[in-house]
Amino acid sequence: MTDTLRRFFDSDVWWSFTRSPITIISAIVALICILGAVFAPWIAPHNPFDLASLNLLDAFKPPAWTEEGERAYLLGTDDQGRDVLSAIMYGARVSLLVGLSATLFATTLGVTLGLLAGYLGGKLDALLMRICDVQLTFPSILVALLIDGVVRAALPREVHDQIALFVVIFAIGISEWPKFARTVRGSTMVERNKEYVQAARVIGVSPPRIMLSHVLPNVLGPVLVIATLNLGLAILSEATLSFLGVGVPATQPSLGTLIRIGNDFLFSGEWWITIFPGVTLIAMVLSVNLLGDWLRDALNPKLR
């Protein structure tokens, strides 16, 4: 373990990290977002879902630094009297959960299918790649909307609310897997012709074993990059879906839901209800994307 850590801090990737101020800032911002989201139940100043503590008299309080602001509500309150900061922290939690799960789902599916297509080739490869082609012609948000709509129509409302989170995760994940599959297929086709794979084949190592222990570790570099970039995209997709009102249920508001709710008050002067969740979303997605860009350059030996 210490050996692995030592190798990491000695690596070119770490070195290039320390050389890039933007990346360091991005990492800090991302870390704040993630920590704030993960530990929201323990560190948020209020519990926005505790109906008992909500008081309509606290509604529409502006941020603390304005004249009418109160110390207790740093970023103000919304129409229900909920603390905006706490709502953002809880909302980011949902956004992050959906983003991570959808990316994980897309990665797993895409890597598995890409590995199979690239290594086995032939008809399976042709079939999978045509499916990718077809899917890539639809904007992913459209695919997500479609799946969400079908599920909504097919299931009763209470059941739907229960599984809404999973539907969103599935919908976003399924629309993103072709990117992973294509990349992995390409690198797999390169790796499978390399001599170390042939050496394993001469010994008679089974194809599944070759795929898992030889090919997979060598195609994961680009996957990591796409996954990082995709995380930002998935968070945005979820926010879009929620903004359109077809995403996560209202009982578990995500950043997108908060922006939608706040949007109604933007022109009546209560700008803070929508601006702060919006800024948080931008900060989160931008920092993750910048990290992804850096990772892509750091892992690309040609640019070093």
Partner: peptide, 9 residues
């Protein structure tokens, strides 16, 4: 094999 750079994982 020929290529000592590609023949070892």
């Amino acid at each position: 094999f020929q290529d000592p750079y590609a023949s070892l994982n």
